[in-house]
Design a binder for these strands. Structure first.
Lengths: 195, 195
DNA sequence: GGGATGACAGAGATTGAAATCTGTCATCAC
DNA sequence: GTGATGACAGATTTCAATCTCTGTCATCCC
C-alpha cells in the first residue's frame, strides 16, 4: 500500500481536486486525506495547518496563472509596448479564467484573499516585473525620468486594479470593459511618457 | 395621536436610525415602524418594498456624503487644479467616514451595493461632474483635445477606483495610501495634459 | 374617502442539539 | 527510526423545528 511515500506535491494535487469539487466553504482536510487514501493525520505531517495547505494551493495557482508574464517583462520589444502587452496579458489571463469557469475562479479568489501573505508576495513579484519595464523605459528615454521605478510600478498597478483585482471580475464581461482597459492603459502611458 | 400625518421624510429618518443601531442585516421594517409608533403596514403606504426603502436611504446618504463636490467642479480655479481638488474631496470624504465610524460606513456600503440602480445613477452623476471639469480643461487648452470628456471622466474615475470604491476602505488607512493617491492623480493629470 | 391597522400566508431567519472537523499525540508497522 | 494511524478534545458546522419578517388586504376610524 505504502508503495509511494506520500509527497507534498500529491497532497497539493488532491487539495486542488477537492477544492474544485466542493468549493472553498466545504473542502475539508478529511476530504483531501480520503482522496489520497490516507488518514488526515498524515496530511498534518506535511502541512502545519489547514490554512497553510490552502495557502500553498493559492501560491501554486497564482504562479501558474501568471507564468507567461516574466517573459513579456524581459522581452525584446520597446518598454512602452512591453508595458502594454504585460498589462494586457495580466488582464487577459484573469478575464479568461473568470469567464471560463466562474466558480473555480471564485474558489481561488477566496483562497488568495484569505492567504494574505501569499497574495502580498505575489503582488510584490508582479510589481517588480513592472518596475523592470519602467526602469528600462526611463533608461531608453521613452519614459520621463522623474520618479522611482518601483513606486511608479505600484501606481500603475493600483490604477489598473479594476482590471486585475478579482473583486471586479463581474465587470470584466461588461460591453465596454476592454475599451475601458485600453483607455486607462493609454492614459497611464501618456502620463509615463517623456515629453 | 395622528396629529402629524406621517411623512416619507420621517420614515427615512427612522430607517437611518434603525440601520445605524442594528446594522443592515438586522434592521427590519417592523423596527422602523416601531420607532415611528405606527404599524408596519403604514410604512408600506409610502414605500412599495423594503428594498425600495433601503434604496431611498442609500440615495439620501450618497447625496449628502458628496454634497460638496458640485461646487468644486464648477469652481473658479483652473481645471487641472479643480480636477485634483475634486478627486481629493471625493477620497477625503470617503476616507473620513470610513475611519470615523467603520461600522456605519460598512452599513451604508452594503445599502449602496444592494441598490444597484441608485449606485449606478450616483456614479453617473459624479462622472458627469468630472466630465465638466475635463471639457473646460480641453477648451482652455490645458488638457489634450483628443478624447471625449465623458469617456475620459469614466477612465479617470475607474483608474482612481482604489481611492473611492468602498471595497478598498481597509487600505485607506495604510501608511502610503495618501502618497499613492497623490501619485495616481499626478500620473493621470500628466496623461491628460496637453503637450 | 384618505389614511392607518393588524391578521394572515409564505418566505426567510434563528436556535440549539447532534454531527463533523481540526489539530494533537500515543501507538503501531515496517 | 521514519512515517502512518486513529482516538480524542475542543471548535465549528449542519439541520430541522420554531419563530420572525415581508408584503397583502379586508376592515376600521376620523
Amino acid at each position: 500500500m505504502a508503495e509511494t511515500p506520500l509527497t507534498t506535491e500529491q497532497i497539493l494535487e488532491a487539495a486542488e481536486d477537492v477544492l474544485r469539487r466542493f468549493g472553498p466553504a466545504k473542502a475539508t482536510v478529511v476530504d483531501v486525506a480520503r482522496v489520497l487514501g490516507v488518514s488526515h493525520g498524515t496530511v498534518y505531517r506535511h502541512f502545519p495547518s489547514k490554512a497553510a495547505l490552502r495557502a500553498a494551493v493559492a501560491r501554486r495557482w497564482l504562479d501558474r496563472a501568471h507564468a507567461a508574464l516574466p517573459a513579456i517583462a524581459t522581452g525584446s520589444q520597446s518598454p512602452d509596448r512591453r508595458l502594454r502587452l504585460w498589462l494586457e496579458a495580466l488582464y487577459g489571463a484573469k478575464k479568461r479564467k473568470a469567464l471560463d469557469d466562474p466558480e473555480l475562479f471564485a474558489t481561488y479568489s477566496v483562497l488568495a484573499t484569505e492567504s494574505h501573505e501569499v497574495l502580498d508576495e505575489h503582488i510584490r513579484t508582479l510589481q517588480a516585473q513592472l518596475a523592470v519595464i519602467i526602469a528600462e523605459g526611463q533608461d531608453d528615454g521613452i519614459f520621463a525620468r522623474d520618479g522611482d521605478p518601483l513606486t511608479l510600478a505600484q501606481i500603475v498597478f493600483q490604477a489598473t486594479g479594476r482590471f486585475h483585482d478579482p473583486v471586479y471580475a463581474p465587470v470584466w464581461s461588461a460591453p465596454n470593459a476592454d475599451r475601458d482597459f485600453a483607455a486607462v492603459v493609454g492614459l497611464l502611458l501618456r502620463g509615463l511618457a517623456a515629453r
